[in-house]
């Protein structure tokens, strides 16, 4: 037996899928909305799983409109560095539970945050720097950065070995690689300071 509307006591409550006009900034877009509607008075509510379904649909559409990273991608970026959600909240200077909300998918991140997240996703040096600035103690993430360093060193060494392969000079490629890495870091730091 269908539920009767408690607002008007006469209408019947039915689950409907109706177009919902979502306004976001200056944009408007239609989404399919699963909701409970009274066929007499028109009261709209979201019951049980309709709540999350509505929120996920709205957030997903906003992400699409603004070209933002998806909630799944945010999670993958975080796990790549073995960051905790609270780490990223501190690194991005956003409030408690904010990253958790973004990852949950029901609230989209701002465009500004999205830009910074893309940068730290692409550049481990930025991620490391933000982690250090926020004074985060995360041994798992530190291990990831150590592994990235090791890999960078190996690549630099391999590159140098190729370059000096034919040389007869007494050169220590490992030492040269370390110097090269240090030089790259210094140059990046100077560039950042200049840009600031």
């Amino acid at each position: 037996m269908p539920d009767l509307c408690s607002v008007c006591d006469t209408g019947t409550l039915t689950e409907q899928v109706v177009p919902f006009l979502l306004s976001h900034g200056s944009k408007e877009i239609m989404i399919e909305d699963h909701r409970t509607v009274c066929d007499a008075c028109g009261a709209v509510s979201y019951v049980g799983e309709q709540i999350s379904r509505h929120e996920l649909a709205v957030a997903s559409k906003i992400r699409e409109m603004d070209g933002l990273l998806s909630a799944d991608t945010l999670r993958r970026i975080r796990l790549k560095y073995k960051f905790r959600q609270t780490d990223l909240e501190a690194m991005l200077s956003v409030g408690p539970k904010t990253w958790t909300r973004w990852e949950r998918g029901k609230v989209p991140q701002s465009k500004t945050a999205d830009t910074l997240i893309r940068v730290l996703a692409d550049d481990p040096e930025v991620a490391r720097r933000l982690m250090q600035q926020a004074r985060i103690d995360n041994p798992d993430a530190a291990e990831v950065f150590a592994a990235i360093d090791e890999d960078t060193k190996r690549l630099a060494e391999a590159n140098l070995r190729t370059q000096i392969g034919l040389s007869t000079l007494d050169i220590n490629p490992e030492d040269l690689a370390q110097r090269a890495i240090a030089a790259v870091r210094k140059a990046r730091l100077e560039w950042r300071e200049k840009a600031a």
Binding site: S45, G48, E49, I51, H54
Partner: peptide
């Protein structure tokens, strides 16, 4: 649990 909840549209 969300299953036990009803939320009206203006709240959302």
């Amino acid at each position: 649990s969300e299953d036990n909840c009803v939320i009206y549209q203006p709240v959302m």
